[in-house]
Design a protein around this nucleic acid. Structure first.
Length: 960
RNA sequence: GCCAGAGUGAUGAAAUGGUAAACAUGCGCGACUCAAAAUCGCGUGCCGAAAGGUUUGUGGGUUCAAGUCCCACCUCUGGCACCA
């Protein structure tokens, strides 16, 4: 037998596959389709990353398994090739980005092919190909025609040293991604896409897709749906002031958004964002206009870093001469502008409730504004519902009693449980006392028990329970929960309570379930009087007129109705800034005519191709380099034929990737982005794997585009991806992220060369759980390489005919088959591989191996290591490719064990094990177990009180 | 601060509530060899000569039985962050 020569074998089969194109998906096929997708790579100059290999291999294994299962699989590949690094390279070297892109994609293609991925190369796409971006532009025009693409003045990030407009993603902590210099916000007209119009559906439709839960959660957080109320406040001039300005006595209204309409009676001032339009109107009516304008200017000057600094103090200015009227109670309250209120969220103005909102609280403390408490943690208006002194109640499975402290009229709860008792320390610790002493004293005083004694065991003494940490502002009181034991006669009493406890738990659990929260609320009342305390949770209303006693939830609706407000849903999601003042992107196909406004380029003229420029650097005024090409910019208006100018902004690199999965269905279509038939057959994507870093941008953007196309009747499904999973990052061997500057990366070629693509693929699947980050460890690859060699060497033992059936091996084979089949579906590749290793180790110990068994092993291994399995397959004399074989099914009859190991436990400790025939009844197992010497030793006289038997697994005897 | 996830040998890691550490790396010993590599075999959580004890971030709880379930705390990673 020849030695395993991975270079020769891999080259050989890659050449064969290049010619035979075995992975071409058929556009029409009677077979069921399967569409797995990876995020198409950005062809960077540094080449393929080991991270690409990890996610590509995972989906490759799934794609290959599906083919063997009889599916018509579309596993496509392409290039997301617009983007900054290529453009920056062009700026530096003057080489056209198109040429750079060509070089990079050639390099990537070669590297991907060297790993044996089963991509359908005939459908390769490239976002920078005019034939492709024609349709990106076309889709943009559909947005434009529906009014979902619009121009608006928006602040953009401006790098002071590069003199370049940057996207949000290109700014890291207020600094330019390229040069590291500081950035600031500048106002600029930008193209926007109205993704917020789809916010509701983007949120709701997550219910219908099979995404990993954490992906759904992140998307939901990003969309930030929140339900609340909009309420109007009248703004009036102060009396003495309005006499002065009699003509300006008109009434203005400020609309605020709040999720806590229940706190309306606690509003003690209003705040408007400094950028709010209303501020300009009001400015003429205030008596301190100078001060106000100064503040507004100061806010504008702040950089992004200063404004978002977490720990910074609140600032603001009162609009003097004005008062707002609280619609709930008619009170006059002051109006402020402050930059802690965001102009773009809600209505840009808030009602401030310092007693129940931390930010308002902080602001009110600083400016000496009044703080009015209107939410109580417990309903204290009437007696029913509130716990009475001495009353018992149940929290989870413990019994509590409300006690009264005569000293300060506070409440105390004791919890009885088994033989010890837990209590809340309410009175604090006196000088010189330790916690235990203080608790002992308190429990004695409060409970009336005389013989309270703490168990003198570090395990039992002080335990934190109700331990609201002292926060920065020293806002929370601190409690400790203690365990202690009672002396004899009192323990009897406790035991009685214990008995009652079970009764409570089982009989009254339902009716008593809220009781503890009520108690907890009572307790909190004590610290509410603390001037440094701010209560944020829901509760019951007080100080709120006719609404007193209502729960927060009820009150939200009732109060909103009472003041004529409306229930409203808001989202954190903002419209998508869609222009870049850059060269290397899709030109936005719009013409600006002085007469007709923005006119779309007629569809027949698409694509609007990128013209050649001399210099790729953005201009000094932040315009795209395209703006310098006058012959390209100046065109006739498509509508009036008058002189007009092309839009010189380009699209962000998210544009081409928002719909690429649709193009794969029909990549060469020049009449439409993809035919209805092709889309109807292939979409939606069945399984999309990608990085978590794209959850809130790419994934959300492409769902938005897809829904828009769906509304136009152009795609058959409401969601683009039926299933989404994510892979973990590959970290450098020191656990840090790979980075070019550190030079701690691993170049794929460096490991493929010595170990082979099959081993590299296998290693990346074996190195750890697929969804977790793992550090690269070049030593680890040695193990899988040895495994591959072992599989190779088994050829020698295989094929011996006339061997008697080895039942044990068959059993192991089918168990492995089951495990591998199931693990692949759950992306548990590491355990799938380990189970194959176990099988191979066992086979290696055999003198000879049945060929059928060896072949089955090769088939289940084929998706992982396509080259070596194909080579062995051929060596065994098969004409047909192993990848065209059917995925082997396991036989459920063959995976049952006939012999099992029974563990014998005594009091839960394993004392012995023995093998027995599977499926024996308890009596027989018990007899065998009791006959063991070791068991006799641990169970003298064979005495045991109870026995537990888990079939075919263990038997547990309880002594005593 | 909020949301999510994770803490297990020297290392990457396994483990439907049922014998913790499978599989792999590393290390030690042995076989083969003039020798080395490769390969194969044995061993390898900790304490202990052994019997045995002990071990899954910490402290409790539930259970015949907890890495796994419940409560509290600590630490780390990722995301969001003045979102009213």
């Amino acid at each position: 037998m020849k030695a395993y020569d991975h270079k020769k074998i891999e080259k050989k089969w890659q050449d064969v596959w290049e010619k035979t194109e075995p992975n071409k998906a058929l556009t029409s096929s009677p077979k069921k389709k399967f569409y797995p997708l990876i995020e198409f790579p950005y062809p960077s100059g540094t080449g393929l990353h080991v991270g690409h290999i990890r996610s590509n291999t995972a989906m490759d294994i799934i794609a290959r398994k599906r083919r063997m299962e009889g599916f018509n699989v579309l596993y496509p590949i392409g290039w997301d090739a617009f983007g900054l690094p290529t453009e920056n390279y062009a700026i530096k070297t003057g080489v056209h980005p198109e040429i750079v892109t060509k070089q990079n994609t050639d390099n990537f293609r070669k590297q991907l092919k060297s790993l044996g991925f089963s991509f359908d190369w005939s459908r390769e796409i490239n976002t920078t190909d005019p034939k492709y971006y024609k349709w990106t532009q076309w889709i943009f025009l559909q947005f434009f025609k529906k009014g979902l693409a619009y121009k608006a003045k928006r602040p953009i990030n401006w790098c002071l040293s590069c003199k370049v407009g940057l996207a949000d993603e290109e700014v890291i902590d207020g600094h330019c991604e390229r040069c590291g210099g500081p950035t600031e916000k500048r106002e600029k007209e930008q193209w926007m896409l109205a993704i917020t119009k789809y916010a509701e559906r983007l949120d709701k439709d997550l219910d219908d897709v099979n995404y990993l839960e954490k992906i759904k959660i992140q998307q939901r957080n990003w969309i930030g749906k929140s339900e609340g109320s909009e309420i109007e406040f009248k703004i009036e001039n102060l009396r003495e002031h309005s006499e002065h300005l009699s003509s300006q006595g008109e009434e203005t209204k400020i609309k605020v958004f709040t999720t806590r309409a229940d706190t309306l009676f606690g509003v003690t001032y209003l705040v408007i964002a400094p950028e709010h339009e209303l501020v300009k109107n009001l400015a003429s009516r205030v008596t301190n206009a100078d001060e106000v304008n100064k503040y507004i200017q100061a806010v504008k000057k702040k950089t992004e870093i200063e404004r978002t600094d977490a720990g910074k103090e609140k600032t603001g200015v009162e609009l003097q001469g004005l008062k707002a009227i609280n619609p709930a109670n008619g009170e006059e309250i002051p109006v402020f502008i402050a930059d802690y209120v965001l102009a773009h969220y809600g209505t840009g103005a808030i009602m401030a409730v310092p007693a129940h909102d931390e930010r308002d609280f902080e602001f009110a403390k600083k400016f000496g504004l009044s703080i009015k408490r209107v939410i109580e943690p417990v309903y204290i208006g009437k007696e029913e519902g509130a716990p009475k002194v001495g009353e018992k109640f149940v929290k989870r499975d413990a019994v509590c009693v409300v006690l009264k402290n005569p000293k300060d009229d506070t409440y105390l709860c004791n919890v009885w449980k088994t033989s010890h008792m837990q209590g809340l320390l309410t009175g604090g610790i006196e000088d010189g006392e330790d916690v235990v002493e203080a608790a002992t004293r308190e429990i004695k005083e409060e409970s009336g028990y005389r013989n309270v004694r703490f168990i003198n065991d570090p395990k039992w003494t002080v335990n934190t329970f109700f331990y609201h940490q002292q926060k920065k502002q020293n806002r929370w009181a601190r409690f400790r929960y203690l365990y202690f034991e009672l002396e004899n006669e009192e323990r009897d009493a406790v035991d009685q309570v214990e008995a009652e406890k079970h009764e409570f738990v089982w009989k009254k659990k339902e009716e008593l379930k809220d009781f503890f929260s009520v108690f907890e609320g009572r307790f909190l009342l004590n610290i509410l009087d603390n001037p440094d305390y701010c209560y944020l949770d829901l509760g019951y209303l007080g100080n709120s007129g006719e609404f007193d006693g209502l729960s927060s939830e009820e009150a939200k609706n009732k109060i909103t109705e009472f003041v004529g407000g409306t229930i409203k849903t808001t989202f954190k999601l903002r419209d998508w800034v869609f222009s870049r003042q850059r060269y290397w992107g899709e030109p936005i196909p719009v013409i600006h005519c002085p007469k007709c406004g923005y006119v779309p380029v007629p569809e027949i003229e698409l694509p609007v191709e990128l013209p050649n420029v001399e210099n790729y650097t953005p201009t000094d005024d932040g315009e795209s380099p395209l703006s310098a090409i006058t012959e390209w910019v100046n065109v006739a208006c498509p509508a009036c034929k008058g002189p007009a100018k092309r839009e010189t902004d380009t699209m962000p690199n998210w544009a081409g990737s928002s719909w690429y999965y649709l193009r794969y269905a029909d990549p060469d279509n020049s009449n439409e982005f993809a035919s209805k038939e092709a889309l109807g057959y292939f979409t939606p994507v069945d399984w999309y794997n990608g990085g978590m870093e794209h959850t809130t941008l790419h994934l959300l953007y492409s769902r938005f585009w897809h829904k828009f196309l769906y509304d136009l009747g152009l795609v058959p499904t409401a969601e683009p991806y039926a299933k989404r999973t994510s892979h973990g990052l590959i970290l450098a061997d020191d656990g840090s992220k790979f980075s070019k500057s550190k030079g701690n990366g691993v170049t794929p070629a460096d490991v493929i060369e010595p170990f082979g693509a099959d081993s590299v693929r296998l290693y990346e699947m074996f190195m750890g759980p697929f969804d977790q980050a793992v550090a690269w460890d070049s030593n680890g690859i040695v193990g899988v390489r040895r495994f591959v060699e072992k599989v190779w060497r088994l050829q020698e033992k295989a094929g011996t005919s006339g061997k008697e059936e080895n039942k044990k091996i068959k059993n192991l084979l089918h168990k492995t088959l089951k495990k591998v089949s199931e693990d692949i579906e759950e992306m548990k590749f590491n355990t799938a591989i380990s189970s194959m290793m176990i099988l191979v180790n066992e086979l290696d110990r055999q003198e000879t191996i049945e060929e059928g068994i060896y072949k089955t092993l090769l088939m289940m291994l084929a998706p992982f290591t396509p080259h070596v399995t194909e080579e062995i397959w051929q060596n065994l004399g098969s004409e047909k490719s192993i990848h065209l074989e059917s995925w082997p099914a396991y036989d459920p009859k063959l995976i049952t064990e006939d012999e099992v190991t029974i563990a014998v436990q005594i009091d839960g400790k394993v004392r012995a094990t023995f093998t027995a025939q599977a499926g024996l009844p308890q009596a027989e197992i018990q007899e065998t177990a009791l006959g063991l010497e070791v068991v006799k030793k641990w169970l003298p006289e064979g005495g045991f009180t109870k026995v537990f038997y888990v079939k075919d697994r263990l038997i547990n005897f309880l002594s005593k």
